[in-house]
Nucleic acid binder design. Structure first.
Lengths: 198, 198
DNA sequence: ACCTGAACACCGTTCAAGT
DNA sequence: ACCTGAACACCGTTCAAGT
């Protein structure tokens, strides 16, 4: 493990703090969502609040770290689908998986928003959002070349749409809501509301 | 103006407080969104914070009051469209208007979420959400009877989808985002991403 | 009946002081 | 180099005391 700022290896105690914060954050976010108390995370990690802030200068940085591995797994799935027989189906399947997963994982949808906070200009970063963007773009390009997708639809459009559905599903999740709400909305969003033409 | 709790007319000073809070809330929400500080609203209204809490027991109650008139206007528009020549187009037009308006009005999308907070079971209430539900349902039924909409699509599906798009657009609005993002997403969501079949 | 100001228990962020 | 605890300026909510 390497310090993000200096690029040098982390001291043992720093590494230990980092790991404990990440573990506590994971549990807290799963329970209370993306706006959970950072102070409580530090408390549960047995760490001073200032330590949390040095390791993760913003809430967004913490969210990105928490979800990094899982998002990497989803991107790997996109890589596997790049050889699927039907390029259009592969794209839809992957987006649907992302949507379902994101809708049921508290905190993930908010983490994927393209905030213009105090973060760097998102050029060539390794945030969850840009990882998904790159992985999805390959599937989209192939589907577009196969004539399966309207040429004016961008990967940003599709990811934002999926994110929108996940966001509203998570926000509504305390209400009386069918648990496949994300599935229903995704199907409508992708297929249109007109009667099927077959 | 009538007190929501007792149903009796409000005393003059209560009415004055109510109006000043609403005016201050409107400005604050337009500037900072639905999570703006209630305390600051009370300060700007020249009112004690406890006064705000009695008039509006929850943040949601305040949001509903702030947007009530505007939502009523949009519902009136739905009523006018009920006689439009093409029932399917009327539905899409109305949803598109709602989407555009909601996306550009800070705080409105969050106010329309179907939270299950400490609020009553939403039976026959006059919240913004239920007003839109009733108005939209008429347009949808007519479009469905005309065979313009798949029978399994509900008004909740459509309103939630529109709300999802508005929500993500508002959340992204500080980022580098084309200002017609809501339009693009709405078009995709409603028309599907497959090539046009004409 | 309505409003006020203070009290309470929380936040996130920062900074001097410790090891 | 890294961590800690305290300090600071904020929240939302509640309640006794005022008019």
């Amino acid at each position: 493990m390497v310090d993000a700022g200096t690029g040098r290896p982390m001291r043992a105690d720093a590494r230990r703090s980092y790991d404990r914060i990440l573990k506590a954050a994971d549990a807290a976010i799963a329970r209370d969502g993306a706006t959970t108390s950072l102070e409580e995370i530090a408390r549960n990690a047995g760490v001073g609040s200032a330590t949390l802030h040095r390791h993760f200068p913003s809430r967004r940085a913490l969210l990105n770290a928490v979800f990094h591995d899982r998002i990497e797994g989803i991107c790997a799935q996109a890589h596997r689908l790049i050889d699927a027989p039907d390029a259009g189906v592969a794209l839809i399947d992957w987006l649907g998986e992302l949507c379902r997963y994101s809708a049921k994982t508290r905190g993930l949808a908010p983490a994927l928003l393209q905030w213009a906070g105090d973060d760097r200009p998102l050029v060539q970063d390794s945030s969850c959002h840009s990882m998904l963007h790159d992985a999805g773009d390959r599937l989209l390009r192939r589907a577009r070349e196969a004539g399966q997708v309207r040429p004016e639809v961008s990967i940003d459009d599709l990811l934002t749409l999926v994110n929108a559905i996940s966001l509203v599903t998570e926000a509504n999740s305390a209400a009386i809501v069918v648990d496949d709400e994300a599935d229903r909305l995704f199907a409508i969003a992708v297929e249109g509301i007109r009667p099927a033409t077959n």
